[in-house]
């Protein structure tokens, strides 16, 4: 099975707002973030706060490491069989993520935030060694 990632240059023109939510939402599709969530986000002494379905959330804007870009992929046609080739389209890009915790100020103990460490370590481990 081969996975093709396809993109046209338009996808890189717009940058989207990505929110990492602290709960699983059993749905895959569009959400009216700009209507319900974005206008209610507040910035204060404890960072960002918002209420989602009555739950108090604490958030933090996380910039992706330099030279990295986030991409949003969409599969328009689901594969019919397991070994069929798959086509994923880049529909949007992002440079930062709004990371949310439920009633807990985001910090380095959060797996998602800590996972960013790997980027520097991977760089050190896997970048080609220069001959001297």
């Amino acid at each position: 099975m081969v996975i093709h990632v396809k993109c046209n240059s338009n996808a890189f023109k717009s940058e989207s707002n990505v929110h990492y939510m602290p709960c699983k939402i059993n749905f895959d599709g569009n959400a009216t973030v700009s209507k319900y969530l974005q206008p209610c986000v507040k910035s204060g002494s404890t960072g960002l706060t918002v209420s989602f379905r009555g739950h108090p959330l604490n958030g933090k804007e996380i910039n992706l490491p330099t030279n990295y870009k986030g991409i949003v992929l969409q599969e328009r046609v689901k594969p019919l069989t397991e070994d069929a080739d798959r086509n994923l389209h880049v529909v949007n890009t992002f440079k930062s993520i709004t990371y949310w915790n439920w009633d807990k100020i985001p910090n380095h103990d959060d797996a998602f935030i800590a996972a960013m460490d790997w980027i520097d370590i991977a760089e050190a481990l896997h970048s080609p060694v220069q001959d001297e």
Partner: peptide, 26 residues
Amino acid sequence: IFGFPQLVRFSWSTADKILEDESFCT
């Protein structure tokens, strides 16, 4: 997905029941 605007008390049984019955489960 979001349920109701902030005017609503999500923790009230009336609102909670609509959420439970009709929203995508979280």
